[in-house]
């Protein structure tokens, strides 16, 4: 089935109604399995049991960036192809992505307390994620400020793309700034050399949280389509009202 078929909101709604229960079920099962795996995972020789926080922290960071990627693709859909569903997808990805970004920040902060002795250090990675969070809030604020949905969609799309272009620059700057101020990090948060016993639960948790991300995204998209219907109804009612 072609993507263009889902430009019809009714078709997309029935698709969402069919897929969502399965997606939620799979996400719940995968999460249960993942948490079970995390429970049985061995401690890290350096970080001890606190490494367990990584299994939710790192996937949340991945999905935080993934969320902006989804928004960028949706933004292209809005600006280039004018696909109506792209507007909805872009708007729906913002709160979901922001929630995962916040999860990453809070778990990172709680991991930092026993490791660094403080809840917040201006570590390069944490700082970049924090700026990403601020940018998510900016996009959400822009969505909420402009009433007309399609105009808001285009404005948010441009902001999203400008952000996508700037994110690598910001990441590079923050890394550079960080090495200037903190010559050597005491702790590397989830580097590439990770023990296989820890890698398996990490990937399972990443998979489970990604399923949760998709389920939430789809559910928020469905809500958004319904919200637009309600808006249309209100407008029709206002037009039909006597004396207008």
């Amino acid at each position: 089935m072609a993507l263009i078929d889902y430009a019809n909101p009714s078709k997309f709604l029935s698709f969402a109604d069919r897929v969502l229960p399965w997606l939620i079920g799979c996400a719940a099962l995968a999460l249960a399995f993942g948490i079970n795996q995390v429970y049985g995972a061995p401690d890290d020789y350096q970080q001890g049991a606190t490494v367990k926080i990584m299994f939710v922290h790192v996937p949340a960071a991945w999905l935080a960036m993934f969320g902006w990627g989804v928004m960028s693709i949706a933004a292209l859909g809005t600006l280039v192809w004018r696909h109506p569903l792209a507007d909805v997808a872009g708007k729906a990805a913002a709160p979901v992505g922001a929630a995962f970004t916040l999860t990453c920040l809070v778990t990172g902060s709680l991991w930092g307390r026993p490791m660094w002795g403080t809840y917040w250090v201006w570590d390069a990675r944490l700082t970049s994620v924090f700026i990403l969070f601020l940018m998510y809030l900016g996009v959400i604020a822009l969505w909420r400020t402009i009433d007309e949905p399609s105009r808001a969609a285009r404005a948010a799309a441009i902001l999203t793309l400008a952000g996508a272009v700037n994110l690598p620059i910001i990441k590079f700057s923050v890394d550079w700034w960080n090495t200037l101020h903190q010559p050597a990090s005491v702790l590397r948060l989830g580097g590439p050399t990770i023990h296989p016993d820890l890698l398996a639960p990490l990937l399972i948790m990443a998979f489970a949280l990604a399923l949760l991300f998709f389920a939430l995204h789809l559910a928020v998209m469905r809500n958004e389509i319904l919200r637009r219907r309600v808006r249309t109804m209100h407008l029709l009612q206002a037009q039909a009202a006597p004396g207008s």
């Binding site: 401690d43 001890g48 926080i53 939710v56 778990t107 709680l110």
Partner: peptide, 17 residues
């Protein structure tokens, strides 16, 4: 370092998520 010493932070992190 064992689970007992930092269990509160681990539980708090999963609880917050």
């Amino acid at each position: 370092m064992n689970l007992a010493s930092h269990a509160d932070f681990i539980v708090a992190a999963y609880g917050a998520a």
